[in-house]
Design a protein around this nucleic acid. Structure first.
Length: 275
DNA sequence: AAGTCAGCCAACCGCGACATA
DNA sequence: TTATGTCGCGGTTGGCTGACT
């Protein structure tokens, strides 16, 4: 089959300008994300549809947290990567404020090195179980989590996103890590979106949760997807995965992880062997 | 001060999955 | 069933930036 000429020679490439961002955000506010094919023609943006989608999902989408990963997030990513492999989108479902691209980049630039470093520290270190302790996981939970994760891989998963959203409080939104003039423009866009979200949330049941980020993550997605999604994914999938989520998050008293000693008896290798 | 190097991250590319006519 | 269009994902690249010499 011949590939559609998504990115022809006339489209602009490279970094997005604040003006382009505003055009894109305005479009999404008006029409919602999706139908990306129509975005360049409707907005006049000299960008291909893919580029527009990517820009939205990785940068402009409301609720994205930028800046340093917390220790909690880091451990969660390591856990999930061990369970799911390089399925960044699936992993990102558990960190709704992070994009798959962000997680992928963080893994490739930080965590991979960290793991290698720890591995190169030798077996003696491993025998003492220090690194394992951070990584090891309960056998039964891990098995169940893996099978459940695999069972939902074909569906966009929003349940976890909603669940994870509970973990941050109003005001937790992190400032952009960089403070360039462009970033400040992005902040302006964020404010624009903020207003949009606040307005939107008034008509949303999620707004009653009193949780800012739930409004951000779930309401925005529902709104921008035109309420067209069946009630499906969020509730249906949430339940089977709740055990993993509980396990992953129940010790999350913001920022600090205390790993249940009962869950630490088995090494990653041992766990992997069981699969 | 200038050049070089390494790290980081936004964006691009190619492919597979899915939807639909 | 097949062809076609669109979307989403993961791997990779290229440019920017700061550290170092």
């Amino acid at each position: 089959m011949e590939r559609p000429q998504c990115c022809d020679r006339t489209v602009k490439k490279g970094p997005w300008t604040p003006e382009e961002d505003i055009v894109l955000v305005s479009y999404v506010i008006k029409h919602g994300p999706g139908n990306w094919r129509a975005v360049p023609t409707s907005t006049g943006l000299q960008r291909c549809s893919k580029s527009c989608r990517l820009r939205w999902t990785n940068y402009l989408r409301p609720g994205i947290k930028r800046g340093n990963f917390t220790d909690q997030e880091e451990r969660l990513i390591i856990h999930l990567q061990a369970l799911l492999g390089n399925r960044w989108a699936a992993i990102a479902a558990y960190l709704p404020q992070r994009t798959d691209n962000d997680i992928k980049n963080y893994w490739n630039t930080h965590l991979k090195k960290k793991l290698n470093k720890h591995q190169s520290c030798g077996d003696a270190m491993m025998a003492k179980g220090q690194w394992e302790k951070a990584l090891s996981t309960d056998l039964h939970m891990a098995k169940r989590a893996l099978s459940e994760a695999l069972s939902v891989e074909s569906k966009p998963f929003r349940g976890a996103a909603q669940y994870c959203s509970c973990m941050t409080k109003p005001g937790d939104q992190q400032a952009p890590s960089t403070s360039t003039s462009y970033a400040s423009s992005t902040e302006n866009i964020s404010r624009l979106l903020q207003g949009w979200m606040n307005n939107s949330s008034k008509s949303s049941t999620a707004s009653t949760s009193g949780n800012y980020n739930i409004v951000h993550a779930s309401t925005s997605e529902r709104l921008v997807e035109g309420e067209s999604k069946p009630a499906d994914s969020a509730t249906d999938i949430l339940m089977p995965l709740q055990s993993l989520e509980t396990w992953l998050f129940d010790d999350q008293n913001i920022g600090e992880v205390t790993v249940n000693d009962d869950l630490l008896g088995m090494s990653m290798n041992e766990t992997a062997d069981l699969f």
